[in-house]
Simulated assay, not measured.
Amino acid sequence: MLAEHYGWRAAFVALGVPGFLLAILASRLREPRRRPPAPVATTVRGWFERGRRQAMRYGKPLIGLSLAGAALSGLLGLFEGLPPGVETAVFAACVSAGIIWTVVRLVPAAVRRTTEASEVAATAFGEFLQAAATVLRTPTLIWMFLGGALVTFAVNGLIAWAPSFMQRAHGLSVGVVGRQFGIWGLAGGALGGLFGGRFGDWLLTRWSGGRVVVSGAGFVLGGPVCAALLLVDELRLFVPLLFATFFLYTWYNGPLSAVILDVVPSAVRASVIGAYLLFSHLAGDAIAPPLVGYLSDRFGLRPAMLLLPSAGAVGGLVILIALTTVGRDMARVRGAR
């Protein structure tokens, strides 16, 4: 709707605002065993003061020589008979000397920052290797990574091709789809994410595989529903199928991440989650849009998109294989504490 009224650029800018606000809110979170963050105003003032001090520290030669050059050129302007342009040349020479001096002073600082960045990068790479080793040693994580890539392939491929599908299969523009069906997809996704998280936590109190079941079952149950959504031609059936698809396809959001955190030591949890996100996107939704496009050119869009619920159902079944390993992996982590 925003794109129809204000253009795609304005629509994308508007969609970026919630992410910016979320980043600000995330910066205010208090980490365990650490003091609370400073207020936003204090943080911004600190940035400004540090930036001003550093700018003055490294910019003094340039500022001083520029002022000296301006004064000297003004003084030379009082004398007659000097070659034309000598004042400008003197001022330019002083400014150039100030720039060179400033660059010379900045080189050691740049080398020091580069060394620090290299050390940080080496540490980050080491943590990534440690996370990769943890994944390969933990059977549950292997199933979570493989299944997660397949379900990410299904979900994000469906999102990427939904506008084109609605336009080509049902003759509806993007704006009409957003107005008529957007709220149902949003409601289904929000309720599905909430239900999946609460249901997974409830099952975990009774069974170590509770979160695994919820993570995989949503895609196993949602596969036929999504296929029906793609095959139906009557729009009166489209809304309930759309709602059900989004509801079932978002069960996994909370429980799958929680399973990953349950089976790894706390020291590498963030690294393992990062590795999972990297793998699932590279092996999942990075492949889905071009592959569906290629198949669409050969067989048509509707048959091509039927690959998505099939991949989601297979991914759900792969996740459910972790039911055979999650109990042992969770016990090992608890025993290592």
Rank of each mutant, 00 (worst) to 15 (best):
H5Q: 11
A10I: 13
A23M: 13
L29R: 13
E31A: 09
R33L: 11
R34M: 01
E49R: 15
R52W: 13
A55R: 03
L65N: 00
S66I: 00
L67R: 02
A70E: 08
A71Q: 03
E80W: 06
G81N: 10
L82V: 12
V86C: 04
V86F: 06
A89Y: 11
A92Y: 01
V95M: 09
R105K: 12
L106T: 00
E116T: 06
S118I: 01
V120M: 12
E127D: 13
F128D: 02
A132L: 15
V135A: 05
R137D: 13
G147P: 04
F153A: 05
V155A: 09
N156G: 01
G157S: 09
R168V: 06
F181E: 04
G182L: 06
I183L: 14
G192P: 02
F199Q: 14
D201F: 07
T205V: 07
R206N: 02
W207L: 03
G210K: 09
G216Y: 04
G216A: 09
F238W: 11
G254Q: 11
P265K: 04
V268C: 01
V268E: 04
S271N: 04
I273L: 14
L277T: 10
L278M: 15
S280I: 15
H281T: 05
H281C: 07
P303F: 04
L306P: 09
L308D: 03
P309I: 10
L317Q: 10
L317I: 12
L323R: 13
T325Y: 03
M330I: 10
V333W: 01
R334V: 07
A336S: 15
R337K: 00
